Simulated scan of single mutants.
Amino acid sequence: MGRFLLVALCGLVLMGCRQEPKPEVEAPVKKDTADCTKTATKAFKMYELSEMASLMERMYAENSQLKQRIVNGDTLGKFPEYMLKIHSAKLTDESDNDAFFKENAANFIKAQRTIYEDPKTAKQHFNDMVTACITCHEGKCGGPIQRIKKLYIK
């Protein structure tokens, strides 16, 4: 009787571990291609950076490299002239291109130039430039502030 229970128990365990075949998935019904395109266009719109956002991404990358050069004591090179486009690049919301923005953009450029003009105190000038960025972003687009703060040289 003990053997019978052992065999029955093993059989139950084996049957419980058996994988069930997965049901076949039915192929989707083909729809009119025009309907799919229309729906896909509405549902998935690719976000494109504004000219200003793209410029700021480039300036962030440039300043990340500049930070490393300052920390390493390397030569700084010269002021990247493309940064002057901050005065003319199109913003995501054109109404943000007001007196506040223009003043802060000028402060940023001045702070950025000072880094290259006085490399002996580049660390302090660099941190002043980062502060200029944060000051503007506190008044306009606060989103990237935490990311910008990572540029500070400690």
Rank of each mutant, 00 (worst) to 15 (best):
E117W: 06
R113Y: 03
A111Q: 02
G2V: 06
I148H: 01
M59G: 04
D118I: 10
T39V: 14
L12Y: 08
L84G: 07
A106L: 04
L151H: 01
Q112L: 12
V130Y: 00
G143L: 12
R58L: 14
F79C: 09
Y116R: 10
I109K: 04
D98C: 10
E24A: 11
R147S: 09
S64R: 11
Y60N: 09
A53R: 14
F4Y: 08
E24F: 05
N127V: 02
K150T: 08
K120Q: 15
A105Y: 01
A61R: 10
E26P: 03
C36T: 15
K31M: 13
S88R: 08
Y47R: 11
T131G: 06
T121Q: 13
L5A: 10
L84N: 15
D128P: 01
F101E: 03
T39A: 15
P80M: 01
E94Q: 13
N127W: 01
A61M: 09
G77W: 00
V29C: 07
Q112M: 14
M56H: 06
E26Y: 07
K85G: 04
M46G: 08
R69M: 06
I148Y: 03
Q112E: 15
M56E: 11
L9P: 00
A61Y: 05
C133S: 04
K45Q: 10
L55D: 02
D128F: 02
T114M: 13
V29T: 12
T75N: 14
D96Q: 13
N107I: 02
R113N: 08
P144V: 04
S95K: 12
P21W: 05
R113Q: 15
T92S: 13
L12W: 09
N107Y: 02
M83G: 05
M52Q: 13
A132G: 02
N72L: 09
P23L: 14
E51A: 13
E81W: 02
R147H: 06
E94G: 11
I153N: 01
V29P: 05
L5C: 03
E138S: 10
I70D: 00
F79V: 09
D118E: 13
R113L: 10
A111F: 01
K149Y: 01
K110A: 12
F108W: 05
K120D: 11
N104F: 03
E20A: 13
P28V: 11
A40H: 03
E62W: 04
C133T: 01
N97G: 07
L66V: 01
D98F: 05
A99H: 06
P21I: 10
R18D: 04
K150E: 06
E103I: 12
K42E: 06
E20Q: 13
T33P: 14
N63T: 05
P119H: 14
L66D: 00
K31A: 12
L84I: 05
T114E: 13
D128L: 06
L6F: 12
A122N: 05
E103H: 15
G16Y: 10
A53Y: 07
A89R: 02
G77D: 00
I115T: 03
V29H: 07
G142M: 11
G2M: 05
